[in-house]
Structure formats: C-alpha cells, structure tokens
C-alpha cells in the first residue's frame, strides 16, 4: 500500500491491480479513499510494486475471472438485454472488489458473486420497471434466479458443447454469429454495414440460434443415453 499525490491534488490509497508492459507508461487501477476503483495514470518510476507482489489483488482477479461467465449469465437472466447486462456486470465487479475484504477465503467465491450479481441486477430491473414500465415481476425474477443457480453445473456442460456446435457451422455462419455477438458493434450497425435490412439479419440470427440450441440439446441427449 502506498500513498501517492494524484493529479487532482488529493490522496489515494493505491493498490495496483494491473500493469502495462514494462517500460511503458503505467496506467494503474487503484482504489481511491471512497473505495471506488479509479484509473490513475502514473509514470513507471513511481511504480515499485509489480502485480505479483499484490497477492490479494491477484487472488481477486483469478477468482473473478473464474466466476465471470456465471456472473454475466446471472445478470443477463435478470436484466434480459445485452446493453443493460454489460453496465450491471461492471457495477457488480466493482462491488465485489469493494466487498472482497468481507469475503471469507474458505467460502465459494462463485456462489457469493452470483448472489451479489442477482441482487444488483434485481435492483436495476426494479428501477427500470419504475421508470419505463418494462421488466418482469419479482416473482418471475426469483424463479429465474433459482433456475439459474440450480442449473449452474449443467450450463458449464452446455458451454463446452456449444464450442463443438459452433465448429459444426459453416465458416460463413460462424463468422456471422460471432460478428453479431461482438460487443463492439450493434446489430443495426451490422445491418447498415452489410446493406441488408435489419429484419433479414434478425431472421438469420434467430435461425442460427435455433440450430445451436438444437445441436446442444442433441448432444446432451446422447450424453444422457450414454449413462
């Protein structure tokens, strides 16, 4: 832990969680006094604490990386659409970091993080529902959360199968679906760049999703039969 006078003339308790390549100017992630993660530009001369010397942060990052897909899926199951899910996941990661001191090392990090994700996503939906009238009831959200939590191992298996199923698609279809799920560009932008009506894009995407779901289900059925 070090104290560094930062660019806005206030003191920050710096805990390094990321470093760019040696020799480059350092862009560090740090926790400010309000326990919020801040992006603080520092010069490398001021850095004396490499990542491997911060076991707590390394531990957090490793655990978070292991739970990340599950957190994303938990949030997505509650908020429904991708844009909102990405905002909520960011908040969840920050909250997990803030509360990481409270986390007991012998407990299950995944379970803990999914719980935080569910509460944060539910709060988001409640707020959105009040503002726009769009969103599911508490009853439905509870059922979804339960189903999501109960099926976590099954979803791990389905994820592995998805990889195989994607490889069974033609290169063109695989590239299309990957482009559609790439977070850099929206579907409307994709349609514009390809000069195709957005409705055709949705139809093709829907068809490919159905194929993938069918492929995964058939694989699952085969695995069940093998037992």
């Amino acid at each position: 832990m070090r104290f560094v006078r930062a660019h806005r003339s206030s003191f920050f308790r710096l805990q390094v969680v990321e470093q760019t390549a040696p020799g480059n100017e350092f862009d560090g992630l740090a926790v400010c006094e309000s326990h919020r993660l801040m992006h603080v530009p520092l010069h490398k001369e001021k850095l004396r604490q490499p990542l491997e010397d911060s076991p707590r942060e390394t531990d957090f990052l490793q655990k978070l990386a292991g739970a990340y897909r599950g957190i994303y899926a938990s949030v997505l199951s509650i908020v429904g659409n991708r844009a909102d899910a990405e905002d909520v996941v960011q908040e969840v990661c920050a909250i997990l970091w803030q509360k990481f001191d409270e986390f007991e090392p012998d407990k299950n990090f995944n379970k803990w993080s999914y719980g935080v994700a569910f509460l944060e996503a539910k709060a988001f939906v409640r707020h959105r529902r009040r503002r726009t009238g769009f969103g599911m009831s508490e009853d439905a959200l509870m059922k979804i959360a339960f189903a999501q939590s109960a099926g976590s191992e099954l979803f791990e298996l389905r994820r592995e199968l998805l990889h195989d199923c994607l490889n069974r698609l033609s290169l063109k279809d695989r590239r299309f679906i990957m482009d559609c799920y790439d977070s850099e560009t929206t579907l409307v932008e994709h349609a514009r760049s390809r000069s195709i009506p957005i409705a055709s894009l949705y139809t093709r995407l829907k068809r490919l999703r159905e194929r993938l779901m069918g492929c995964i289900s058939r694989h699952m059925q085969r695995e069940d039969d093998a037992f």
Binding site: L76, A147, I177, D179
Partner: peptide, 21 residues
C-alpha cells in the same frame, strides 16, 4: 429461458476472442 440466456452469455464469451482474465 435460462438455457437460452446462457447460450447468449456463452456466445458473447466466444465472440470476445479473449480469455476470461
């Protein structure tokens, strides 16, 4: 519904083309 949500989540992960870390 949750299977479909997880499919979307996994496809996002596949499309990221980078590790979870």
């Amino acid at each position: 519904y949750v299977e479909m949500v997880n499919l979307h989540s996994d496809l996002v992960g596949e499309a990221e083309r980078q590790s979870d870390e």
